[in-house]
Design a protein around this nucleic acid. Sequence first.
DNA 1: AGCACGCCGACT
DNA 2: GTCGGCGTGCTC
Length: 726
Amino acid sequence: MSEDSSPTGIVPVLVPMPAERPYSYAVPPGMRVVPGSIVRVPLGPREVAGIVWDTPTDRVDARKLRPISEVFDCPPIEEKARRFVDWVAAWTLSAPGMVARMFLRAPAAFDPEPLLDGLRWAGGEPERLTEARARVMELARDGMAWTRSGLAHAAGASLTVIDGLKAQGVFETVMIPPQPVVAAPDPSFATPELSGDQQLAADTLRKRAAGGFSVSLLDGVTGSGKTEVYFEAIAAAIEAGRQVLVLVPEIALTAAFLDRFHDRFGAKPAEWHSDLSPRMRERVWRQVAEGRVRVVAGARSALFLPFRDLGLIVVDEEHDPAYKQEDRVFYSARDMAVVRGHIGSFPVVLASATPSVESRVNAQQGRYERVVLSGRFAEAALPDLRAIDMRRDPPARGGFLSPLLLREMEKTVSRGEQALLFLNRRGYAPLTLCRVCGHRFQCPDCSSWLVEHRFRGQLVCHHCAHTEPRPEACPECGTLDHLVACGPGIERIAEEVVSHFPDARTIMLSSDMMGGVKRLRLELDAIAKGEADIVIGTQLVAKGHNFPNMTLVGVVDADLGLANGDPRAAERTFQLLSQVTGRAGRTGRKSLGLIQTYQPAHPVMRAIVSGDAESFYEQEIAERERAHLPPFGRLAAIIVSAATRAEAEGHARGLRRAAPAASDISVLGPAEAPLSLIAGRYRFRLLVHGDKRSDMQSFLRALLSAGPKQRGSVRVQVDVDPQSFL
DNA sequence: AGCACGCCGACT
DNA sequence: GTCGGCGTGCTC
């Protein structure tokens, strides 16, 4: 495609709003734009950033045509990224403008980073050489440019010292180019020591990295060295001069990954996630666009960074549900990474110890190449895993920890080793009720119970922002002191632990912990250094941390995820339990994983305890195939929400009636969504189920356009390939 | 998605 | 008499 300026003087521009097509704008005389140029355009009463597109402009009323205000001094969004936008929009049934908007998340970065004011030794000497001045001169004498504060800091001198020297003419002012956010990674910084197995896998990935599009499923148990192996693919891509994206499910918690990367490449990758400071966000975006940043480690939104020559994507923990975005544009970052690789003709590596059923099937059917790492790395041994049958070894009255688990915790702590208790439920108790009248505390805006957070003294809704103070008396019958907490959350487990082990150092970790990401990283560091005996955590402790002294992992309620009717419940539980029990025994010491369950015969528990993942996968795959569920069939959800139940249900029924006739696609529902009321909106769902080869998108488009017009408070969301059924 | 316009309730 | 709620409609 030629990228010269449009001869017509009219260009299509994708603007960040849910229009189906780009809008047309006039290019004022003397302005040069190319497809991909980021421009400022008037839109209604305001001005927005948009991307010049390359679909033909449609005829538009000349009176409507408005001129582009400005072309930003910014590298254009490359052709392959533009095709990616079109593809994602078509697949997810989103407006292209809304997908383009994801590329424009750092408005301040569209203008170049300003040069910094700097100082450089001008050749003169200070009048009197004090100690501080000597330290400054020692650094400055090589003629390198410094920022005023940078030089002061490095020399351990105050700013007044620098200013004094400057006043004497020792320094001249110079402009310094903006500093890179990260140093360049060096592919030969450290030579990895790989086992035979790992070397074989690394060679395969390196070979793929040199070619065009391919998908490799790197499958190996925790501790088998997956990271070291895919680092070789990254090294190959860097050697080829291309950019690399590593997707991780929760970057805010993967400090350990950044350190390992640094050990291998001598520099950290740039980070991209929601917790970045606005300034850092701008700089990373800009330097990725300029090609100065070679490697990004990021959350799913990093897929929409303006890479100029992306040559490899690695999706770490590819099975993780966090890759699914479920607002605005509904997409799976793992699947879109594969699409991005296909469009860009470069390889994609999916890595996991517990791959998704979808990826396993894709590998079986030859679409992906499966690369297996079978052994655990070095001296690391798999933990000994056992189920605790809670019917036979129940906890003491009022408790949730079986005597068997408590005994092992005691032994572990007395050996000076660490124990981890895992429960995927925040707060103190998931339900509070009045013992006298039976009143249950429910969210006023959602169909869910309020969760007691005892530490904060509040009842909290986990589905919206609602919180209320925990009262002393029942609001229904007025009885004092008869409210009772039902079921455990991690706060309650922590309380039980403290009562059994008053002298142990106990830490509790959950995603809603005060102090945010920084605090979490510090706590995780402290745990790794051995500054806690017992750790109680939600699923964030399951993800990617290495606790060398952790020799016992206890799963408080292994059945928790199995209760809902989700077709992926068993798979998800298997993955989560594998991951959390994998936290133990990473340094070769004898370690133990204990799984509290009321259904020890459940296939998930059997698979975990026996270590026989293969037959579990076979069973799950067979079950999916039988039910024509993904990847053997296709699913889409249509979620209708409205201010009243009647409106939502009425609209959903209208959509159902509008479904076109199709032999290979059927519509189920509408049914009230499992959480029928969230944040004051009633929700109904339609489930669209098709054959593997059915044209789901065309069917959905036909259904939506034939359906009733959206009016009032009604909102319709489409989720192609839904991952969760809540 | 934003933003303005527009039409009905409680207040300086 | 105005300020302000959010329903409806439009943006090249």
